[in-house]
């Protein structure tokens, strides 16, 4: 498991490792290592040398790579979709994103409690979902990661493509 000081470094590293072809997943670190908003990347330990080299070559910050196998927890991956007629709301964990079907414009973001959520709310609202940065690319926390899962589901619904 690759451990980090903050969630954003874990998200960036997961993206880099997946791009490089590694099979990795985001998980919670063991309870004794948690501060409150934590994320780690689970790797195949036999790939540690290559992964370590990639992280160092790219200057990706991490605390360490430790052979921890127990007491981790997977991220919740369930999404729910609610149809409001002209709008559609997608919920992932504690985060919800609502878009106008015809235009693909994000009309609301709700839920969550970490400090980047009001920031993401301001960045995303009243803009087309196809034209805004992804929450996981500009957010920092687990709430942002949940919002990104809802965002990702919205993208698969191809909202607003008729109008675009």
């Amino acid at each position: 498991m690759v451990l980090f000081t903050d969630v954003q470094h874990a998200m960036v590293t997961e993206k880099a490792l997946k791009s490089a072809g590694y099979l990795v997943r985001l998980v919670a670190p063991p309870p004794e290592l948690r501060k409150g908003c934590d994320l780690a990347v689970e790797i195949n330990l036999v790939e540690k040398p290559g992964i370590e080299r990639l992280l160092n070559d790219r200057g990706l910050a991490y605390i360490g790579i430790d052979p921890i196998k127990i007491a981790t927890a997977p991220l919740l991956s369930v999404v729910k979709v609610t149809d409001f007629g002209d709008w559609i709301m997608v919920k992932a964990g504690n985060m919800k994103i609502t878009c106008e079907k015809a235009s693909g414009v994000i009309v609301n973001v709700s839920g969550g409690g970490c400090p980047d959520i009001p920031y993401l709310h301001a960045e995303l609202i009243d803009r087309r979902i196809s034209e805004v940065p992804r929450p996981k690319d500009i957010g920092f926390t687990l709430c942002a990661l949940n919002l990104d899962r809802a965002f990702d589901e919205c993208l698969t619904l191809r909202l607003g493509e008729d109008e675009a």
Partner: peptide, 26 residues
Amino acid sequence: PDATEIAFLADPNATHPAYIARHLFE
């Protein structure tokens, strides 16, 4: 809390709503 967050409060192992057990979220 909202309905998801009450599931988080009910889950003895979760330290953030991103980690609540699937059966509680559903």
